[in-house]
Amino acid sequence: MGLAYNKIKKICENLGEHNDALYAVLAIAVFKGIMRPTFTMMDKESDKETKKYAAFREGLTEAIAFCSYLITHKIFKSQAPSLAAKTGKSEKKIANGLSLFSVCLTAGIIIPAVCNLTLKPVMDLVKKVSDKRKQKLGNDAMQGKLDIKENSVKTNESFAAVYSPKLSPNSISLMDSLYKNRMQNSGMKVGG
């Protein structure tokens, strides 16, 4: 209990001393990256494949957001000392300001642009890989079925003998009459 109290107190003191705009947006990106795919997978109305696709896409979007926030923040913040030297303003203030500016720029422009450029190719690639895997699984299943059939039919007779039964003269005349009737009913004429 005491440890938790001290931990929370330390976090609060640090946030009170310096609260970066990045903390909240990173926390949101991380939890969105976990919660949105989870909710999508829990949806009982969509089929399994669609859910998987949507969940992966959502997870990927938040992963892009998380990385974009971190990278732009690092790039912008690294400029603070040189800008402070040039302008003579407080480095801490410039770093604070750049931090919020980088968050705004990332949320409004960089994330949607990166998503537009990367999501489609990545999702196409994932779909391709998944289709290939499915095809392979399908072939394996088909082979399995054929194996079962081949093993289950054990006969010494030849293929022609099996599929060309010997018919009695009565049976042949009956088959002919049935065939004729069928063709007449369908309105087709053989050789006509």
Binding site: G16, N19, A24, I28, F31, M35
Partner: peptide
């Protein structure tokens, strides 16, 4: 500056943002 009080507001806002938006 009462950093602890200010930090507690920020922490609860972060937790609230996460719950609200996710």
């Amino acid at each position: 500056m009462f950093k602890l009080a200010k930090g507690s507001i920020e922490l609860s806002s972060i937790v609230g943002s996460v719950i609200g938006l996710t």
